[in-house]
Amino acid sequence: MAAYTIDLNGRKRSVEADADMPLLWVLRDVVGAKGTKFGCGAAYCGACTVMLDGAAIRSCQMPISRVGARKVTTIEGVGASPVGARVQAAWLEVDVAQCGYCQAGQIVAATALLQKTPKPTDAEIEASMNGNLCRCATYNRIRTAIHKAAGMPTPAGEVAA
């Protein structure tokens, strides 16, 4: 065990953990922030997506010892940025969630995308979001919500919610 200080949603947190403990488990079981979800433990599903300095990463693959001074943004803190707040609002307006379990990862991934690419093409949306599984398959509405958050019209062929 070693002590680490992480910058979590704009606040410094001291945690004690093994060097190889993934950030996911530090967040969930050491810090007690349950919003970031465990889905596969192998970077296939994206349920554990968080931002490190604004880039979406799979927290199940990120040892706490490698986080360093980078800013960690989770679903609990994503609404602090204007883009994140717009994404959350769009998710509610479109009523994306069914079970909702993957949506924390989806929202964080969508926020990372729109912060970097404010008006993404459909191909850019697909490339950024394809790593995030939704077992309820709410993909039609995820696309629509991203368009709404970006201030773009509902995608061609999609059903406006």
């Binding site: 922030a33 349950k34 919003g35 970031t36 989770t74 679903i75 609990e76 609404g79 959350q88 998710w91 509610l92 009523d95 969630a97 069914q98 909702g100 949506q103 924390a104 929202i107």
Partner: peptide, 13 residues
Amino acid sequence: ANIDGPAIVSGKP
């Protein structure tokens, strides 16, 4: 809308 929507999009347990 889904009654738990606000809790879901903000990561509540």
